[in-house]
Amino acid sequence: MATAAKPQPLTITISKNAAEHVSDFMRSQGFESGVLRVAVKGGGCSGLTYVLDIKESAEETDKVVEQHGVTLAVDRKSYVFLAGTELDYSGGLNGKGFVFNNPNAKKACGCGTSFSV
């Protein structure tokens, strides 16, 4: 009898390309270690805006994910809006920089920096 695959809990992931850019940025800013804080704040055209920041360490209550040598730290409330998101990087002359592929986002503003759920 076939067994249905157990659904994987939603988490936050970072692509290899994005992780390399984060590591490069941290080195350029003099961080020998640290975490990439991924968060959401109110505002932007659609209501919620993504926030990226480098911090020395995660908060106790953060959700912490390690991938491709980068530690992501997400506060609990932001995680509600970010679960399932992949952080990618769009490079080149026409690239957008860091890109959030967020399955919770029902609508995004024209510039892509804010979203609504």
Binding site: S46, C109, G110
Partner: peptide, 8 residues
Amino acid sequence: GCYTGQEV
């Protein structure tokens, strides 16, 4: 600049 609803 940006605020919620600004684009519309």
